[in-house]
Write a protein that binds this DNA or RNA. Structure first.
Lengths: 160, 160
DNA sequence: ATATAGTTGACTGATTTACTGGGTTAAGGA
DNA sequence: TCCTTAACCCAGTAAATCAGTCAACTATAT
């Protein structure tokens, strides 16, 4: 279980989905605009999220992504694991042969530690995050800030 | 608070120190041999650990490193923060201006999350880890496995 | 048909990781 | 005083990862 900015991007994007995809799918372009993440980077992340069956896809016009299950059933740990390529942190993948064919100190230590963190993050769902006041406020502001940009983009595209 | 292999190396090395430096200082060479970490990499890590006042140094023959305080007063979070240069995970360093001079979704979310992880790791001390059975067993085995190597190294050096 | 939107892969620059090798400095012992 | 020990420090580097770009592709709704 690693904790890097990559995982944070994924959690942010999933939270954005949770806010906006209840009725209609959300395009990566919309998420990119609201969360200021590059579209192509989002594509990479969602490719993994899709393979991990965290999101479902609707292709074609009006399409986009939606969460594959209710927000209460998606936890932070799963999101991070989906994008963070699990090059397991002990170099032996639970094989317990990190050091001269035997377990290293780190093995038991870090396994235990990262298990605990994993369980902790697994206990937090998207639903939990959605309930938080400050997050709701930020999300509303983001919608207003960026709504006109998204509209503008659509109009401009239509005119061309 | 990031969670990478670098932090794991630091925690492993500190745990090794906790096991072996109670009476006499421990050289980085010994740790390098026991934990199979490169000596120069250890030097880098301990340079930071020393600046963070996690360890004290004794120079010259018979010297090495010792913990700066009792094992119960050194927690995992401090160790990781000492070596992981805190390029804060939100790009705004608590300034709350990550996105167009305002808070991003990530800000509150990730701040909260990483705070919780920080507190969790802060609640685990080296003393806690030392008490764990599997860790004790691995440490004993490592001593036996490597003791002769360390002895050998000293003899060889003496002969040269 | 055409525009929308996801899918895939190759490729890039920047940064971090983990390590090598060189020399310098402090301290202890013969 | 000289030698050894061991920390200190610096410059460099191969590999991996991060974050992102670009281009060609497929599926689908209108």
């Amino acid at each position: 279980m690693r904790l890097t900015t990559k995982g944070r991007y994924a959690v942010t994007a999933m939270l954005d989905l949770a806010f906006h995809s209840e009725r209609t799918p959300v395009t990566l372009m919309d998420i990119a605009t609201r969360q200021t993440i590059s579209l192509s980077y989002l594509e990479q992340l969602f490719s993994r999220l899709r393979r991990a069956e965290m999101v479902v896809v609707v292709r074609g016009p009006g399409g986009g992504y939606q969460l594959s299950r209710p927000v209460a059933e998606i936890n932070i740990s799963d999101i991070i694991k989906a994008v963070d390529e699990q090059i397991d942190s002990t170099q032996c993948g639970g094989e317990t042969n990190c050091q001269n064919q035997k377990a290293c100190l780190t093995h038991d230590l870090w396994m235990g530690l990262s298990n605990q963190i994993h369980h902790y993050l697994a206990s937090i769902s998207l639903a939990d995050l959605l309930e938080r006041k400050p997050i709701q406020e930020v999300a509303s502001r983001q919608e207003q800030d960026v709504e006109h940009l998204i509209e503008l983009r659509r109009e401009v595209i239509v005119r061309l």
